[in-house]
Design a protein around this nucleic acid. Structure first.
Length: 206
DNA sequence: TGCCAGGCCCTCTTTAGGGCCTT
């Protein structure tokens, strides 16, 4: 039977800094596959890209330079991650960040991204305008999402983002009466001006 | 060695500035 909701790959990177354009590299990746509101598969690995992580980020993530020296090569990990994702539509929290690293790490293998990213932060800003802020951890607490482990580790954050996406999908179906919630719709909603959202959702209701 | 981003979004806007989010 075809699933009611399209399968999504929710991705999270830990990195050595904020921008690959400044020489920063990925240090850990996690991808969870979300289908019909449930996590059905996971991929997670540290990766050694040959960079030294500054103390602030070691403290933030708990990923030490010793852990990275013992990790498999970034090249090997990214090849596995790309195969795991395939052409599955991608989602990330503040997707512009993860997209930059996904594109940059794939480019080092001579690969190009095959699909668009939807952004759970942009969706949350539009669908949940009244929460204190739209950080992933705050949203997880506000919505009482399932516990996923230590924040700022890739698998915990990817699972947290996946539960957030599942919550937003359910909101769209049950509160806004939208029968078909797919990746294309999530991308479109992320681009609608906030002031136009109520009207946009009304027109989608079935 | 030392340095360190950038796109979105709001508003006291558009000839701009600053906060938010990710590590």
């Amino acid at each position: 039977m075809e699933p009611r909701l399209e399968r999504l790959a929710v991705i999270d990177f830990e990195t050595s800094g904020l921008s690959p354009a400044s020489g920063c590299r990925a240090t850990e990746i996690a991808i969870v596959l979300l289908e019909d509101g449930a996590i059905v598969d996971r991929y997670q690995s540290l990766m050694n890209a040959g960079v030294v992580v500054p103390p602030f980020i070691e403290q933030l993530t708990g990923i030490s330079n010793a852990m990275l020296r013992a990790a498999p090569p970034a090249r090997h990990v990214m090849a596995e991650a790309a195969a795991f994702v395939g052409a599955t539509p991608l989602v990330a929290h503040n997707a512009s960040f993860d997209q930059k690293f996904w594109d940059a790490e794939l480019a080092r293998l001579g690969l190009a991204r095959r699909q668009e990213f939807a952004c759970s932060m942009r969706l949350a800003r539009r669908l949940l305008p009244d929460v204190p802020n739209h950080k992933l951890g705050t949203l997880a607490r506000q919505l009482a999402l399932p516990a996923t482990g230590r924040a700022h580790r890739a698998l915990a954050d990817a699972e947290m983002a996946a539960w957030l996406v599942a919550h937003l999908e359910r909101m769209l179906r049950e509160r806004h009466g939208i029968a078909r919630v797919d990746h294309a719709l999530l991308c479109r909603l992320g681009n609608v001006a906030k002031a136009r959202m109520p009207d946009f959702l009304n027109r989608l209701a079935t």
